[in-house]
């Protein structure tokens, strides 16, 4: 891997994080006509307002406020929550770890289900299995997370009583209980991701199966199984890396809704609570951590792609 390519990719990631931090700061603190007023609500006394304005440095020019804020964040200080009066950073990181568990579990389930289904749909193009898979995929991408989540909870928790409806138990403390509490949220996220990955997997496999080297492999007289597994699948699987990375962006948005519905104390729920309570430092930290996670994941995916497919580096 050429060093220049690597350095360029890393620079892009840093640029992304900087732009995101500017945006988050601008939307939350500069855009409101009076951030202090909107934080404290209508019942604030003039003294309280003045004190908070001074504390936030609202009198300073915007760029000065930003640099001050960014400097603090860069040194790892995310500020004190206005709701709990506790430092925001450690609380957000704990929440993030729970969300990551949810995300990783969902991606694993997605890969296990979606890749074989996509390949089967491609192999039986135009037949019943293909139509079935396409219909399910359509339904999966046409239902918002909150609908999928609510319908699954209605079926699996309220009607069949197979799974607990809400709540979170750490799998480290009680493995069985932890998994059963994670099952519904993971299932909800997976339904949507599966629809997405399945569609991509199908069209990638179709593309690869039409390529010259597959025809060559067949003409060489290789058994169909070997053509499929050793030649076609390897190449069709490559773009899945990119798709999963792009889906992380979707996943981060979806997690806000899903954690809210299933009462999981992850970063999405922390963000929703912060937004409802107008807890500025928590909103800023939550949004920044989420977007940074996306930027880092995409960089890692690009690196992984470059390792797996050397052609990409010469572009």
């Amino acid at each position: 891997m050429s060093l220049a390519w690597f350095a360029r990719r890393l620079l892009l990631m840093i640029y992304t994080v900087v732009v995101v931090s500017m945006l988050v700061f601008a939307i939350t603190q500069i855009l409101p006509a009076d951030a202090a007023q909107s934080l404290l609500g209508e019942n604030a006394t003039p003294e309280m307002l003045a004190a908070l304005r001074a504390k936030l440095g609202l009198g300073d020019p915007a760029w000065q406020q930003y640099l001050h804020w960014a400097g603090r964040i860069f040194s790892g200080d995310f500020g004190i929550s206005m709701r709990t009066s506790r430092p925001v950073g450690p609380d957000m990181l704990t929440a993030l770890s729970r969300s990551l568990l949810l995300a990783v579990a969902s991606i694993v389930v997605t890969l296990i289900v979606a890749v074989p289904l996509g390949v089967i749909a491609a192999l039986r193009q135009g037949r019943l299995a293909d139509t079935g898979v396409s219909l399910i995929a359509y339904l999966g991408v046409s239902l918002p997370e909150f609908v999928t989540a609510t319908l699954l909870a209605l079926l699996l928790a309220d009607t069949l009583h197979w799974l607990p409806a809400t709540g979170y138990v750490s799998p480290l403390e009680n493995f069985g209980d932890g998994i059963s509490h994670l099952a519904l949220p993971v299932l909800t996220i997976s339904v949507i991701l599966i629809a997405h990955v399945m569609r991509m997997m199908r069209s990638e496999t179709l593309d690869v199966l039409r390529s010259d080297y597959i025809r060559a492999a067949r003409l060489k007289g290789l058994p169909e199984r070997s053509v499929l597994f050793r030649h076609a699948l390897r190449n069709a699987l490559l773009p899945v890396v990119t798709i999963i990375a792009l889906d992380v962006g979707y996943l981060l948005g979806g997690i806000i809704v899903i954690e809210e519905i299933f009462a999981i104390p992850g970063i999405g729920r922390a963000l929703m609570v912060a937004i409802t309570a107008r807890d500025l430092p928590s909103i800023q930290a939550g949004a920044l951590i989420m977007a940074a996670t996306y930027a880092v994941t995409n960089t890692l995916a690009d690196l992984a792609y470059a390792v797996l497919d050397p052609r990409i580096r010469y572009d």
Partner: peptide, 22 residues
């Protein structure tokens, strides 16, 4: 386009929530 890509690092729902909360 690089800046545009950077803005896209904020998931749509998160962006919409931040804007509406403001």
């Amino acid at each position: 386009m690089r800046t545009n890509d950077a803005v896209m690092a904020i998931p749509g729902l998160l962006m919409a929530l931040l804007l509406v909360s403001t």
